[in-house]
């Protein structure tokens, strides 16, 4: 089925367009809105974005595939991101990633069959002073250790 933006989101896209002198510049905002509505950016979504902004679909594709936070496949309801970059690693981030990976039975960018979880090993999230950290969807959980991290995962199960 073809993807359509909700009325509310169409309004938001109009507002986003007003921020910039060109329609193309509103693409990142529009892809964010699309991802919020659809969960990921499918081919139909890209068609619709190109249409609504009046740009080429290949421009949408090129942007969507450049940024790591845009998904081109459905991710889990809880997208678990574990930082293993240096400051987190020095305080146990890599072990947390291994534990979380084991407990979810998922590898990097894997999605559970029930669609509930997905896992991502991420680069520095700007929480180095409160490391180690994980993020679930948009929320940060900081100052963790292995047990606390697993507790968070369990509370979502």
């Amino acid at each position: 089925m073809a993807f359509k933006f909700t009325e509310e989101n169409t309004r938001r896209i109009d507002l986003a367009r007003k921020k910039y002198p060109t329609a193309l510049a509103a693409i990142m905002d529009t892809v964010w809105i699309a991802q919020e509505q659809n969960g990921y950016i499918s081919d139909e979504v890209m068609t619709e974005i190109a249409l609504i902004l009046g740009i080429d679909k290949v421009q949408v594709l090129s942007v969507v595939t450049f940024y790591t936070m845009y998904f081109t496949k459905p991710m889990g309801k809880h997208h678990v991101q574990v930082c293993t970059n240096v400051s987190c690693m020095l305080r146990g981030g890599a072990e947390i990633y291994d534990e979380v990976s084991k407990s979810l039975g998922l590898e990097h960018l894997g999605v559970s069959t029930d669609g509930k979880f997905s896992l991502e090993e991420v680069e520095c999230m700007g929480s180095c002073g409160t490391a180690p950290m994980i993020a679930v969807n948009e929320d940060y959980y900081e100052n963790l250790d292995k047990d606390k991290a697993l507790e968070i995962i369990k509370s979502l199960q």
């Binding site: 520095c124 700007g126 929480s127 002073g129 409160t130």
Partner: peptide, 9 residues
């Protein structure tokens, strides 16, 4: 602010 080790901004 994506430089690893930076969390000031």
């Amino acid at each position: 602010e994506s430089e690893p080790g930076s969390f000031k901004d």
